[in-house]
Design a protein around this nucleic acid. Structure first.
Lengths: 212, 212
DNA sequence: TAGATTGTTAATCGATTAACAATC
DNA sequence: TAGATTGTTAATCGATTAACAATC
């Protein structure tokens, strides 16, 4: 039973995404029922956590059988707002930026990169897939015309804040920050940090602490 | 005062990495002292949290002045095991894998990609920067000879588990998993998940929940 | 029926924040 | 000195886990 639309803690959202990822695949294998025990094992969590998380959804399981996979996938999709497509723009046409633009996983999940921007004049006009790299002065126009919800920041740390400001001014509601600089944003803007370099630091540190 | 080398909770490690990232830059600007208040503001946390985290280090601040930036950077570097370089291999020479290999940020932080591997025969032999893409049969030899600690997995979900098994068998101690599949690993192996697609889902979901 | 599994409440655990004495 | 800041303890907050009645 869904209590309050706005009351999902971030850890719950992250885990629901995990369940969705696994169950979507399980569904294609023809799996029709799954218990909290099995799902917990598959994603590396406890039964209790899985049941608590699923209780947030507008959805019920069946005693002794578990959860119907197809319906659970649908409920997750709805709750995670993955039913509609989501348009995004990306700033920074370096190696990482280009790789993300060309990556098919995002489209498959309903995220469409509708514009790629870079302040480097030498890159402007070049193609990345079907998109042409544009100057940031075109940002606002694209965000308005193409109904863009989110911006991805894949520029060097030094220009991250400037780019964030321009994206917000252009009208996006959320930022995915791939660079290591801390962003300062107004309250109504959501920022999620996705930093491979910091994740690698964390991994290295954890491993070395254990071995010491 | 450092109580127990092995007792750092993951959230603390992540925040210490953040402080390190910011302070390293502040140091190059010539900043010599910083208070918990200022550092907290710069990285978006509370004073209390900053002071608690720093109390984990083998390091002391000075009343009324705060913390000496250069010494704090050194203490963080030591605690986070960033004093020595760390050798890694990467499996999956697709767009993302190549972009990471070519990215300079990792080297700057002391992470050296010493080998790139792909099971695709058409890619083997080609160059990515100074590295030549190799077959996975060469994995074990590279890990042993080049003193490799970590493996980065940048392959499609379907082959992630197989690749993880091979990396573990080759002798790495930790895995950075960039793909969405859940990995099953023995207890002595550390896995950190770094998933742009899931971060993007989280961002989209959070934004849409707020706007609804 | 007996056994298994859900849904939910209560208990535990851990992390963050607040408060304040000590200090310069 | 007065004011500011550290270091640390205690209080709060929230998330995870355990337990168990209800159910099929």
């Amino acid at each position: 039973m869904q209590k309050n639309k706005n009351s999902f803690p971030v850890p719950v959202i992250r885990r629901l995404s995990k369940y969705y990822g696994y169950l979507e695949r399980a569904d294609t294998w023809g799996r029709s029922w799954i218990s909290s025990k099995e799902l917990a094992k598959a994603v590396g969590l406890t039964r209790s956590t899985v049941r608590m998380d699923i209780s947030h959804l507008d959805f019920s399981g069946v005693c002794k059988k578990g959860y119907p996979v197809d319906k659970l996938v649908k409920a997750l999709k709805k709750t995670l707002y993955l039913t509609n497509e989501c348009n995004v723009v990306l700033v920074g046409a370096g190696n990482i930026g280009k790789a993300i633009t060309l990556h098919k996983e995002f489209q498959r999940k309903g995220f469409y990169i509708k514009g790629i921007f870079d302040s480097d004049k030498k890159l402007q006009g070049k193609k990345v897939g079907k998109l042409i790299i544009q100057d940031l002065s075109k940002l606002k126009k694209t965000v308005e015309e193409k109904n863009i919800l989110l911006g991805i920041i894949a520029v060097p740390s030094e220009s991250a804040q400037t780019v964030a400001d321009k994206l917000i001014q252009a009208g996006v509601s959320g930022l995915l920050n791939l660079c290591c600089a801390q962003l300062i944003v107004p309250e109504h803007i959501t920022v999620v940090e996705s930093r491979i370099a910091i994740d690698l630091c964390e991994l290295c540190c954890t491993v070395k602490m254990q071995n010491s």
